[in-house]
């Protein structure tokens, strides 16, 4: 309370009112009264100026954080923050990840390495890509379709050119990788960006000579084209290729390692939103 004598006096101005006045949050009739008091008592104006000045200093001190661009991920153990942004982009169509029992397939990193090697091999354009993987409407020009056998696994490779003549390839494996969830996994620490996800009992990996964000958008569009797995919990729906697949329930806990390396600190308890 600002000492103006009697608190109940008609012209009393409280600290709270001055603070609200500084924010422009007083009702008009009260704001007029406070403004009149400020004109009559310059120390009130000084006080409001001090508030503003202090907050302007805070603003200046913290504004660089706001202006920072999202740094590139340079290594798997890079800060979680850049990956958080990538995660947001990558998880635009997150299907509500839920960890299943571990699959029998290779580790995700191994799967990625295998297909990356295949991607680096020159491909002969045949223009043959079967119907379900044509992805009409995405602006992709099919180049070739090839069956590969990598580490004993059958993998189908689909190659495309996008509208900007960037090459990209989708790899499809008839098994889940060892870690199963419904998330997009962005792997930008490779020589070219990769996006991996699982859908309908299969693992997919998209590789392309383009920006990670663009590749992720394409991956999400492909996932949509192949069938939205977002269904009510407990239901079993046919996967994109017709095989039954149990879809993770929306709102299930996020998988460890989704999108990036996670710290091992415990999740905060309570407070569901």
């Amino acid at each position: 309370m600002i000492s103006l004598g009697n608190r109940n006096a008609k012209h009393a101005v409280t600290d709270e009112e001055l603070s609200a006045f500084a924010d422009g949050q007083l009702p008009p009739h009260r704001a007029r009264r406070v403004a009149a008091e400020i004109r009559a008592h310059p120390r009130f104006a000084d006080r409001i100026y001090a508030y503003w000045r202090r907050e302007a200093a805070l603003w200046r001190a913290l504004d660089p954080v706001f202006q920072e661009s999202v740094p590139q991920i340079e290594a798997p153990r890079a800060r979680r923050w850049p990956a958080a942004a990538a995660l947001i982009v990558a998880a635009l169509l997150v299907t509500g990840g839920a960890l299943h029992m571990a699959g029998s397939g290779p580790a995700p990193a191994r799967f990625a390495d295998m297909v990356l090697q295949a991607y680096m091999q020159p491909a002969r354009a045949s223009g043959e890509v079967s119907g379900p993987r044509l992805f009409s409407g995405l602006g992709l020009q099919p180049l070739s379709q090839k069956q590969l056998k990598l580490a004993g696994r059958e993998i189908t490779e689909y190659r495309y050119h996008d509208a900007g003549s960037n090459r990209l390839a989708l790899y499809e494996m008839d098994h889940h990788t060892a870690i199963q969830d419904g998330w997009f996994h962005v792997m930008s620490d490779k020589s070219v960006p990769l996006v991996r996800w699982q859908q309908g009992g299969k693992s997919y990996l998209l590789v392309g000579d383009m920006e990670l964000a663009e590749l992720t958008r394409t991956a999400m569009a492909m996932q949509q084209k192949m069938g939205s797995p977002r269904v009510a919990p407990e239901k079993t729906v046919p996967g994109p290729t017709g095989s039954p697949s149990s879809t993770p329930a929306n709102g299930a806990p996020a998988p460890q390692g989704a999108g990036t390396a996670r710290s091992t600190r415990p999740a905060p308890a309570g407070n569901n939103f």
Binding site: V65, W81, A84, V94, N250, A252, P253, R265, N272
Partner: peptide
């Protein structure tokens, strides 16, 4: 702060139905 933001973003995506 980065950890906090990431937790927030992850939770927002999980709870988007709310």
């Amino acid at each position: 702060a980065d950890d906090l933001v990431q937790d927030c973003l992850e939770r927002a995506l999980r709870k988007r139905h709310l």
